[in-house]
Design a protein around this nucleic acid. Sequence first.
DNA 1: CATGAATGAGCGTTCATTCAT
DNA 2: GATGAATGAACGCTCATTCAT
Lengths: 212, 212, 212, 212
Amino acid sequence: MDKRQQTVRKNDPEKTREDILAVATEEFATHGLSGARVDAIAERTRTSKRMIYYYFGSKEDLYLAVLEKAYRKIRSLEADLELADMPPVDALRTLIASTFDHDENNPDFVRLVSIENIHRATHMRRSSEIKDLNVSIIRTLANILERGRADGSFNRDIDPIDLHMLISAFCFFRVSNAYTFGTIFRRDLSEPATYARHRAMIADAVISYLQA
Amino acid sequence: MDKRQQTVRKNDPEKTREDILAVATEEFATHGLSGARVDAIAERTRTSKRMIYYYFGSKEDLYLAVLEKAYRKIRSLEADLELADMPPVDALRTLIASTFDHDENNPDFVRLVSIENIHRATHMRRSSEIKDLNVSIIRTLANILERGRADGSFNRDIDPIDLHMLISAFCFFRVSNAYTFGTIFRRDLSEPATYARHRAMIADAVISYLQA
Amino acid sequence: MDKRQQTVRKNDPEKTREDILAVATEEFATHGLSGARVDAIAERTRTSKRMIYYYFGSKEDLYLAVLEKAYRKIRSLEADLELADMPPVDALRTLIASTFDHDENNPDFVRLVSIENIHRATHMRRSSEIKDLNVSIIRTLANILERGRADGSFNRDIDPIDLHMLISAFCFFRVSNAYTFGTIFRRDLSEPATYARHRAMIADAVISYLQA
Amino acid sequence: MDKRQQTVRKNDPEKTREDILAVATEEFATHGLSGARVDAIAERTRTSKRMIYYYFGSKEDLYLAVLEKAYRKIRSLEADLELADMPPVDALRTLIASTFDHDENNPDFVRLVSIENIHRATHMRRSSEIKDLNVSIIRTLANILERGRADGSFNRDIDPIDLHMLISAFCFFRVSNAYTFGTIFRRDLSEPATYARHRAMIADAVISYLQA
DNA sequence: CATGAATGAGCGTTCATTCAT
DNA sequence: GATGAATGAACGCTCATTCAT
């Protein structure tokens, strides 16, 4: 009889860690690094403030853990698409739609990245995990571009990182700047019609750019 | 030579205000609203911390004044371009280049807008000055689009606000996300070659999108 | 032609002083010495904060001026009663009623005295005007007591100051402690029925004490 | 002899709380709510200013805790007298003497109540503990009055709360207004002879009032 | 007489963090 | 592995007061 397997262990270190991380993600994404309160995180956690320090050492290290987890998640998402077998234009449209949807569905990620930019990416640079993030999307894009130029779908020769930026910028900005842009232009960017129109627009713009 | 015009007068409310505002802009742009320190602003000011409260009432109100000034500045810039007489394509290229250069040259503005988005534009909304910012760029874009469709330069019918977003997103993102993007892709976005390439890219992408 | 008498002088020093004093009385009576705000007084005054210092020198001196004025007022009130010709019991009843009504009608005075007691009468002691306040009520009481013992109205030999205290305590306490007493015993002491009952009670108690 | 019981333990929350409360009582009683300084309290405490906020949350809440403790103390004192078996007049004299002595011996309580009245009892009203203070003295007085009327000791029919006020007013005023009254009438109210004379006076006055 | 601008000192409060058990 | 108690440093802000005109 293994007592451990029968009893619901009250102190599950992994769960405690994950619990803290989840609450911290929300708090940092909502208030920024300096705006976030360790006390606020502790209060909404199953454990105490002391545990945050026990597991993560400091507020900044907790923030970094949150950031790392957020980046880890997108990397895993990128892998899911099966684009190799699609015609280049279709593959690109799928990839763009996926990026678009990802940012729309993960505002916390978008906010965390914005916050990290306010801090001039100083924490991210300390993290080998993020720094060495092998961004598969660039390889994917390079492959699509190559195939497209080979079969005549695309005419333009372009750096895949630049292309990624063109796509990312639009998808990211829609979410990151939704509040100021929405306020000034009196527009609710998350309205379904707007959402669909923008989703088509960025794909069309990119494709026509590559074909021009 | 009147010495009085050269010397910094002690009791010059306008100068005191402007001095505080300039220092505060830097501090808020660098550290965000919660990260900024009133003490830090005061130290780099000609006057004391007390004066900040004398003129601005609170840290948040000072932040709002900084934000308002930043937005006031771009509005005045927009007015300077004389695009009415140019052919639509040329006018659009000029406008895009101007937006691109503006964001590149005003990273503080970009950062302040990012920060305000982290705060869900709550301060901006309180400011009638910013909320009622009559964004002339939309009228300008609408005019260019109309002329372009009339003379056959453009084929696509598109909402000028959507178009503004397509342009803005790229120009803004290049600056706002330069640190994380640069870190992950090991790229210095402010390098002249990159700068020039991106400046051409966004214009080409937009033009080909409108012509497709 | 005396110009002064014809023109309404805009800057009437005496009026300015009185204006400040009236506002200050309210502020000090409401918030106490340390709770009162010079800014708050200035705001509700026709003039500026600078004038307060011009006329009164400091917050404490202004407070003392307020206190002095309050005491000056009661002294003038005491003189108004014509008790010498009344029978002793009637005179005493009149005097008690007058004290009772005075405290009820001058809660600001009562509050200022309470406040001064919190400060252990330190300011009052500095003021020769208040210290040397020739309290005529004691002479009046002494006279009533003497006449009462002479004509057999009163049997008890009592120090007039002690008697004044017995009367004062009740009248003052009703006003000074109205809030705590009222809260604990759920009673509104300014209700007309209560007012009348108490007014009779203190007179009856004093008279029966002197007659016992 | 266990040394631990003699030494002041460092981590004794109850002691820390009580220590702060004792110092705060003195500070608030001396300087009032707005005049009291959190720093001053902290300095005379075994702990730091931070602990005040740890235990009491804010200056106002600390003040309320002080007030509550002060009221809690008098309630417990009231219970100690065994008056039920005494003849009504004796019982009343004992009760009055007890009230008199209590106010004389607890000037801090008297001052705190005065201060709370300056604040219009706003804090007290927030405290259910004080608001619902079951004032046993009223029941005691009612019982004495009833017995006195039954056995012919007292002739007057009077509301026990009014009677309590007549007694309280004198006892309280002697302490609360000792400074201004003493200054104006050049009298030291705490002098033994005066103290004894006043102690007899209020009892005689009340008794003769009830018998008249 | 009068005023807006300016100020140093200190206020109540909060922060991320660590200690003792 | 976990907890409540404790902490120094600094934070945003306000005070009575004075300066320059």
